[in-house]
Design a protein around this nucleic acid. Sequence first.
DNA 1: CACCGCAAGATTGCATGCAATCCTTCCCAC
DNA 2: GTGGGAAGGATTGCATGCAATCTTGCGGTG
Lengths: 207, 207
Amino acid sequence: MRAAAEQVAESLRDEILAGVFPSGARLGEAELAGRLSVSRTPVREALSRLAAEGLVEIQPNRGARVVTRTPDELREIFEIRLRLEPYAVCRAVPRLTARQLDELDDLATTMVTVGRSSTLVDLNRCFHGLFIDAAGSPPLAQALRAVTHAAVVHQNFHDYSEDALDRSLRHHVEMVAAARAGDGEWAEAIMRAHLCNARATMIGGRP
Amino acid sequence: MRAAAEQVAESLRDEILAGVFPSGARLGEAELAGRLSVSRTPVREALSRLAAEGLVEIQPNRGARVVTRTPDELREIFEIRLRLEPYAVCRAVPRLTARQLDELDDLATTMVTVGRSSTLVDLNRCFHGLFIDAAGSPPLAQALRAVTHAAVVHQNFHDYSEDALDRSLRHHVEMVAAARAGDGEWAEAIMRAHLCNARATMIGGRP
DNA sequence: CACCGCAAGATTGCATGCAATCCTTCCCAC
DNA sequence: GTGGGAAGGATTGCATGCAATCTTGCGGTG
């Protein structure tokens, strides 16, 4: 993409995922343009892009807002992730380099030590993102990022019970073990459990 | 989206999916703006949008082109569809109205009669799109449209063998029967076979 | 007191203009 | 004859300006 627009999009994406803009926050073009010292044109382009990524929604003549998902949509997003992300992990395992394995190890162990901090969601995003990238399938990565991003916006680990959070972190560690063992099937199974655990705690039990 | 930009995007989307612009065709901003009697601004916005939809790819300072997928990417797109579209059909079946069932019937039977015409791909797109919409899950629809669009660009039924095309059309009819019976499991199974059949003929046998 | 209509301010949508980058082609040196 | 390089044209990227639309606050009316 274009340099300035790319920078604006990246900055906005980071800030939205970091929670700087809460869900539903209004994103005025002029305000963003002023904040980043660019014209409104690249801002509009970035907003368009983020809208397609599922991070913001644009209403004609009414501006852009950070997306708000209904509980139903959140549940659906997990259904999609459950069907794609385990597959991505299975594909990724045989392609992981030693360097990437170490990085995953770092992320998993760090997440255990940092506890409930704001960096936890960042580390989690990196962890899942690394697997998605390592799957080596641009279409898969595109499809998954759209839904994982949308989920992350509403995920801050605050809702996790002590038990659920503990399980989630152990899943990461176990997934790295499975990856080191080269067992894609194992890693895929853990990812499936990982997402079910997340779904149960985020959405609540089956109604 | 904005009125003019929306119109440009829709027009471009239709023309790309209709094959007016072949895969890899250059999409100059000035040319498109002139053709549709708008300024370059909405054209740029539409191209950005279509890029996010996976229909075109934008290279910085080098303009936009209709996407070209490698065989590997096409194969991956089918892997994604195989994991999402049967699920979408299963969800859609209990939600289909009588009117939608009739429409599906029309589409399926029409596709049998028209034979290998250029409208076949359009009808096919409507058929699959109706199921996707009827699933009633915006995130699922978004994820699926991105990959199905990209696949349609490279799909013109020319590569289908007589047998494969026959199977494909019968699948549609059977899917409608399953939907009328309210049997989501049945419809889901046929959709899975339908996609495997398409994958086999479009990609070729397993290497 | 509540509700509807209206006008001013604010914001978005599009057109246009200019600078930056890329592609083409021609020329020159080897 | 071939390869490298530079100038010209063409195209993209961004900034700015203006018209159209929406939001907000106020006044009037029932």
